[in-house]
Amino acid sequence: MSVDVHTKVPLFDVRALTRVFGHGESAVHALRGIDLELAEGEVVILLGPSGSGKSTLLNILGGLDAPTQGSVKFAGRALHDMDERELTDYRRTWVGFIFQFYNLIPSLTARENIELVTDIAVNPLPVDEALAMVGLSHRGEHFPAQLSGGEQQRVAIARALAKRPRMLFCDEPTGALDLKTGVLTLEALMQANHAFGTTLMIVTHNADIARLGDRVIHFADGRIREIVHNPVRAKPADLHW
């Protein structure tokens, strides 16, 4: 399913976005003026070397960080003007995150980690359904320390999907996984996109993963160097790394 960005209302509308860390001589320009639109249901891959600004963009769009200048609109609402409480509501309601190190709460079982989200979401998935989506129905009562890395990452995906987010941010989701478990993880993500039309933004170093996206945005030195449109999205099972 390929999406033409020019024919739909953008889910995100980013204009002249800059982000500077520190000031004076030690200032680091992580983003140097980004313009970008994301369409609902799109799968976008951010590719680039370390420090090129891709994670910074993901964090700002996810409401974890604020831009130094420029504007970010989510479904028409200005993210850059939101206060702490509004950003919390935004994260609670609309977006999900997947991190490289899973970030599960170690003192809660797989099921309880998902319940964390279903307890506060407006229209959540049933917990069993979320577990089933990632193929972990039988591991619900296990604590993170009792699960493998791939299983932990799939619990994290189930947790992110359980709130039926419109947008899923994935920062190096397979960074700590081997090929086989990495593929399983990516399949879970792609299935969410397929089943719920969830927009995906995946930050990665891995050029092969880029084949999964509708668009591949290449970052370098805080700028978008190139945007590549994939006519056909690859299947996770076809990937190699």
């Binding site: 309601t93 989200v117 947790r159």
Partner: peptide, 11 residues
């Protein structure tokens, strides 16, 4: 963990 909770949307 506290950061994770905030990311998940806890105030």
């Amino acid at each position: 963990d506290l950061a994770t909770l905030q990311v998940l949307g806890f105030s």
